[in-house]
Design a protein around this nucleic acid. Structure first.
Lengths: 171, 171
DNA sequence: TTACGGGTCATACTTTCGGGTGATTTTGGC
DNA sequence: GCCAAAATCACCCGAAAGTATGACCCGTAA
């Protein structure tokens, strides 16, 4: 069928259509404003939009609202096979007790920032995209991911997400 | 004392100073090239400040307070039956339908083989591991993953897994 | 018979991930 | 003010993932 063709050249087709629409829009605007001289209004509008965007960007960039972590304990009747595997990882902080503190098991020593990164991972974002969202560099995210993998005792992001969801660390 | 104050409001101060310098620069330029009609510049500046403030206000108002909820799984001494590890975790994503949604699969045109690969992906396996499990070559898995990404309209395996689980294609 | 979808495999290439290491800055508690 | 933890950023390097393209085989439906 033509589905394969469409699938293969989907983006090319989309790009073509988008370009056509954009050209049409430009033509329309040209016609629209050739009559009236709305230069000042357009200028003001552009300025307003630009600086509103700047303000939003600034606020998001500079304000780091405290991430309040709400901890809800939930009793689970079925001890998953992975839970014992978690224990040795947490045993770094509490090696004495054979059954470490529940909070340490659950949190695994994950910081708030690491959970944010984990959340991004779970949404299927790349490290670069997570970096952009959190306004930090790619290297920082890589450091965070490394520590997350360490603490969760996994080696790949897919495993981390799977485990984090299973442990209800993230939704 | 003053250091603490400076530290706390560092960015605000920086922003203020920067703004002041910018205004000064504008004034200087204005004086440099004596043009009587300063109305536009003043108007622009006022507009810029106003809408920057608006943007900041908007961002602060609209950005929801980030509250990360951590649910702690607490083991209960009561021994549980031999439940597969996946089952309890899947209960939160698919409480109603334990079986995959056939309609979604048919709708997306995913083949049986592709579902198998997708399943492997969801378990956090690497392409090589999936290849070994299905007794095919690594390149074959890569081809499958590419087609899966096409059909699911995603670009990364993490996104594919996220979407597949959301659509109940896999458990 | 031919066209097509599905499965398989390959090469060559670019991009992203992840490990390892070291460093500085920021933050929060004492 | 001091200190430890957290957060940030950098560089290198190998591995894995993903893109693009072409090819072959095999059923099946037109």
């Amino acid at each position: 069928m033509a589905t394969r063709f469409f699938r293969r050249y989907k983006y090319a087709l989309l790009y073509g259509v988008a370009l056509a629409m954009l050209l049409f829009l430009l033509k329309w605007l040209e016609w629209r404003f050739i009559i009236f001289d709305h230069a000042l209004e357009v200028y003001s509008g552009a300025l307003a939009i630009l600086f509103t965007g700047l303000g939003i960007w600034l606020a998001l960039r500079l304000s780091r609202p405290k991430v309040s972590t709400v901890i809800i304990e939930k009793e689970v009747p079925a001890p998953a096979p992975e839970v014992p595997a978690v224990a040795p990882a947490a045993s770094d902080t509490a090696p004495a007790t054979p059954i470490p503190d529940e909070k340490q098991i659950a949190l695994l020593g994950l910081s708030a920032r690491e959970i944010e990164v984990l959340q991004g991972m779970a949404e299927g974002l790349s490290n670069q995209e997570i970096a952009d969202r959190l306004f930090v560099s790619l290297n920082t995210i890589k450091t965070h991911t490394s520590r997350i993998f360490e603490k969760l005792d996994v080696r790949r992001r897919t495993q981390a997400v799977e485990k984090a969801k299973r442990l209800r660390i993230i939704v």
